[in-house]
């Protein structure tokens, strides 16, 4: 579904991502793990066009690497950015409605679908998004991306800054989405959780993909365990 070849990003001279290549197939949950500053966020932003990039990105065999950010969602890529990035002064419902902006028409049953997934959001739908708790904001951000009916859902650090209980909840939902057939690209510092829900994963270090493989194998790898799991 998604094929990325030799993707590079420079931030005013400094290399943030260097010739990264990866692939995400239909129905897969693929992880991208790495430390803070390894280039995970840059990788996802390069795919969704919010940073200037070199290299080729193909989505369903269409080259999308030359497109500006706002034309990417129409190709079925939903990006849940790092830090959730809700519109804080719009209501939860307006945030969700804007998620479907690139659709020619919003589907009313989509609201029901995401509210079924996150019942809390239905209770809070009239509230300003900025007043939600961190966990609720993460749910709303995922819900907003789901409103797009994405073929590929990209999640950037969904566990960042959340209490462990909430992290579990979010990951249950991600696992549930994966089982129901969603294709997901998940960037995480929380390596344990990420390898748990993904089938394959790529390891990023200082802007380069240094390793990839089935998540179960990576979980067993001593190098990975030492580098990320502190064992």
């Amino acid at each position: 579904m998604l094929r990325v070849s030799d993707l590079s990003v420079d931030y005013s001279g400094a290399v943030a991502l260097s010739e990264a290549s990866l692939e995400v197939n239909d129905g897969e949950v693929v992880g991208v793990i790495g430390n803070n500053g390894a280039g995970k966020t840059t990788l996802l932003k390069a795919i969704s066009g919010t940073v200037a990039r070199r290299g080729e990105i193909e989505m369903d065999n269409k080259v999308i690497s030359g497109l500006p950010a706002h034309e990417i969602p129409a190709h079925g890529i939903g990006h849940v950015p790092e830090g959730r990035r809700l519109f804080p002064y719009l209501s939860v419902e307006d945030n969700l409605a804007l998620g479907a902006y690139s659709q020619t028409q919003a589907h009313s049953d989509d609201f029901e679908r995401v509210y079924a997934l996150f019942p809390r959001l239905k209770e809070r739908r009239r509230q300003q998004a900025g007043t939600l708790s961190g966990g609720e904001q993460q749910m709303a951000a995922i819900a907003r991306a789901l409103m797009l009916r994405p073929k590929l859902l990209m999640l950037d650090e969904p566990s960042l800054g959340l209490a462990p209980v909430i992290v579990d909840q979010i990951y249950n939902t991600i696992a549930q989405l994966g089982k129901s057939g969603f294709t997901i690209l998940l960037a995480e510092q929380n390596v344990a959780e990420c390898l748990e829900v993904s089938s394959r994963a790529y390891v990023l270090q200082t802007g380069s993909i240094i390793r990839s493989g089935p998540s179960q194998e990576l979980q067993k790898s001593d190098a990975i365990r030492q580098a990320f799991l502190g064992i």
Binding site: A69, H70, P73, P81, R85, L86, F87, Y89, L90, L98
Partner: peptide, 24 residues
């Protein structure tokens, strides 16, 4: 209105709005 909300979204977070397909 839908367009007006997109406008407000852009004023609150230009990049996040673009990620949803709103042409800045």
């Amino acid at each position: 209105t839908r367009m007006g909300k997109a406008l407000m979204a852009t004023s609150q977070d230009r990049e996040a709005a673009a990620m949803l397909g709103i042409n800045p």
